[in-house]
Design a protein around this nucleic acid. Structure first.
Ligand SMILES: [Zn+2]
Ligand SMILES: [Zn+2]
Ligand SMILES: [Zn+2]
Ligand SMILES: [Zn+2]
Lengths: 146, 146
DNA sequence: ATACAGTCTACAGTCACTATAGAGGCAAGC
DNA sequence: GCTTGCCTCTATAGTGACTGTAGACTGTAT
């Protein structure tokens, strides 16, 4: 039951030290106890909480959504519909993004397949980027970083 | 052949005014002529260049990749393999991202389907986020913003 | 005792923009 | 000429979710 330093917590939950400190500043992790010399000290609760956060991030939940999930965790006898709707919303986001990326994949493939090489002047890839008209069938939505 | 103000260019290429000025500061659009009173003045060349940039962004190319593409455009008798490989690389990125998101979709669906409602304490969605072990088959990669 | 890894704070940088503030410019209607 | 109302200008800060750096201190192993 020895407390863990931030580095040990980092290895236990597989989250970088700097990220843990960042999570503290934004209130996602609480403010830990400190040793006499000022080092942060953590327990198993923190390992679990940080692992939960990590997995939620891997599933694409935003920090704000994770804050909500953690709040809900502390009221364990409430109905879980709030939790489920956060997950449901996340699924919808993922599916939207999937549709976007599938359209992108089709368009890039078509561009690349059409190019027969040669001078840049006649490159079909370049032409396809230039001609928005050619791909009007697929209207692009605002694209977040890939 | 009247020059366009930034607002007209904005409507012509469907790119926001602030974004055009931003593209200028990062050297993606050149520095335009100015009117006597200091307003930016653009021509058809700029409409085409900005439309090209817009479509490339919609296809997910990074600003740096677009800079490369524009550099290549100015050497139109070179072989287009450099262009094609930028597009090919982009396709690879899109496909990586697709695979990630498909894994995410599967996992979220499974979580949501398993939950039969009730108290948060027994919520399968919560449990699934908590138990990294349950989904070890799908190892998550570093996830960029959805 | 010394070396070296870990920890501390505070702040700047990333990407591709978006938003805001405050000042000055331009065309149309009266 | 004057007012109205939008357009444009610069400069700066904010977004999300971190990452990187500088410079100082601490803890541990040999
Ligand atoms: Zn080509
Ligand atoms: Zn297109
Ligand atoms: Zn549930
Ligand atoms: Zn998982």
């Amino acid at each position: 039951m020895k407390p863990l330093t931030i580095g040990r917590l980092s290895r236990a939950a597989n989250v970088k030290v700097t990220t843990i400190r960042y999570y503290e500043t934004i209130g996602l992790m609480g403010t830990p106890d400190r040793s006499a010399s000022g080092q942060r000290l953590y327990g198993m609760v923190d390992v679990e909480r940080l692992s939960f956060i990590r997995h939620a991030r891997e599933l694409g939940f935003s920090i704000d959504a994770i804050k909500d999930l953690i709040r809900l965790q502390t009221a364990p006898d409430q109905d879980c519909s709030a939790v489920d709707s956060i997950a449901q919303q996340q699924l919808v986001e993922v599916q939207k993004r999937l549709a976007q990326l599938e359209a992108l994949e089709r368009e890039l493939k078509r561009m690349i397949e059409n190019c027969r090489g040669g001078e840049i002047d006649g490159c079909q890839v370049m032409a396809a980027i230039n001609n928005h008209a050619e791909c009007e069938s697929e209207k692009h939505e605002r694209l977040k970083p890939l």
